[in-house]
Computed example of a mutant assay.
Amino acid sequence: MDADDAGWRRIALYLLITLASVFAPGAVIVASLAIWRVSQDSVLLQSMQSGTADGAGALRYLWIAAGLSLSYLVGYFARALGFVAVRSIGKRWGPQGTVGKLRADIVDRLGADSWDRAMATHPALRASLNGPLDQSKLSEDPLFDAFIYCKLWLRRMAPTLNIDAIELEINVLCGSLVPVAAVTLLMGQQAQLSSGGWVATAALALAAWWIIITNALKLRQDERYEAFRNVVADAAMRAASTGRPLRPSAPPGPATT
């Protein structure tokens, strides 16, 4: 239960997220555009083949460096667009979990004593989770600070309970929306599809988008739910490990129901 001061863990997480949700999608998009461009210009294709055959090493490395840089920039903006799309759709059609439902579920699973202990241990959470925001959705802004508090607490003080895996998966899903469109267009162009083939390909892409967005919306709510639940579980486990009773000596705030 000691604090995790390993800065390399945070750096490793950032690098993993960047590789999986920025570089990889960006590389797919850049490669798709490159294949499309080369397929449209036979002279360019012959020039590239000639350069490779002649062993133009310095030029080849320059192209690789440019491709990696472009992949990062394109992937970064592609992921940002994916997040905008997911957030916009989530405001209208996303999961509708509320603070009240969250508290009732955690109390049902872990007990009212565990909830009260967590609220006593973390006063910063009382206004958001034990106050008048019962009808607020878990994804709404009033809960953002409480969510970040829980996320940082778990990452530093209870790393075995952190939610970094969910954060990684959300980033990957949001970063994959634009590459799916790019690959779909490339497949259609390379196969020289008829109008019916384009309709089928577009339907397949839309189905993939629906699966990606649906899962991203669910994971965004699960991320917040697990952050709050794991902080409650952490407080209960700390109390159990010290042999102290779960019931706090003074009520932390409004009574739970």
Rank of each mutant, 00 (worst) to 15 (best):
L125R: 01
F147T: 01
G131K: 01
A20K: 14
W93T: 08
V232I: 12
A3S: 13
A255D: 12
A233V: 10
L186H: 04
L152I: 07
V199W: 13
L217I: 09
D108L: 10
A124L: 10
S69Y: 14
R247F: 09
M119G: 05
V74Y: 02
L102G: 00
A80D: 11
W198R: 04
E226W: 15
N215H: 14
G55H: 00
S71I: 01
I211C: 13
I29M: 04
S47E: 15
D116L: 14
I29V: 07
S114L: 08
D134F: 02
L129T: 03
L16C: 13
G97Q: 08
R155D: 12
Y76N: 12
R224H: 08
Y72C: 04
I106C: 02
L246K: 02
S249W: 12
K218Y: 14
T121K: 13
H122S: 02
L193A: 09
W63D: 09
S241G: 10
E140N: 08
I11N: 11
A233L: 15
L62C: 06
I64Y: 09
S69L: 15
G51T: 00
Q135H: 12
S136H: 11
W36F: 12
L186Q: 03
N162A: 06
R103L: 04
C150A: 05
I163H: 07
R247T: 15
G131R: 03
W63R: 10
A240P: 05
M237C: 10
V99I: 01
Y225R: 14
G51W: 00
C174D: 06
Y225E: 10
Y72K: 06
R156T: 10
T242S: 15
P179M: 02
S241T: 10
A78N: 04
T214I: 09
P159M: 01
D105W: 11
P142L: 02
M1D: 12
A239F: 04
S136V: 13
A158I: 00
A12N: 11
C174S: 05
